[in-house]
């Protein structure tokens, strides 16, 4: 599925539809650590109590199984740090494989936090 980036750019608002979870591709909350100022609005608004800020600080995807994909953190982040990203492949035997090519590009630009 090719994303028509030009059309989307001209839109005044990016759709904040909750992505559906399919059997083969999982969407995870994905963070660009260089944008994160650790204000904590993400964690503050998480209805299930995940410390999203900690994932964002490290530029890691939120892999906490309690995540219900409500998009509250993605929507509330004032810095555009968080977005939905493709990450893992879930196989029929329920094993999960993370494709490193799917990780955010920002991770290649900046040194990682510990």
């Amino acid at each position: 599925m090719f994303l028509n980036i030009t059309q989307l750019f001209k839109a005044q608002q990016i759709s904040t539809e909750i992505p559906s979870t399919s059997a083969t591709v999982l969407k995870l909350v994905t963070a660009d650590a260089t944008r994160c100022v650790q204000c904590g609005i993400c964690s503050y608004n998480c209805p299930v109590g995940i410390d999203v800020r900690e994932y964002a600080r490290r530029g890691k995807q939120v892999t906490d199984s309690r995540c219900i994909s409500c998009s509250a953190c993605v929507n509330m982040c004032p810095r555009g740090t968080l977005r939905w990203g493709d990450a893992a492949l879930i196989f029929e035997d329920a094993t999960v494989e993370v494709d490193p090519k799917m990780l955010p590009d920002a991770l290649h630009l900046q040194p990682r936090f510990a």
Binding site: V37, I41, M76, P78
Partner: peptide, 21 residues
């Protein structure tokens, strides 16, 4: 604490406690 986050505290989007990193 997150100094950039003080902007969000005065907008009522964040508590002072949550600002502590």
């Amino acid at each position: 604490y997150s100094r950039p986050g003080i902007a969000y505290v005065i907008l009522g989007r964040l508590s002072e406690e949550q600002l502590i990193t």
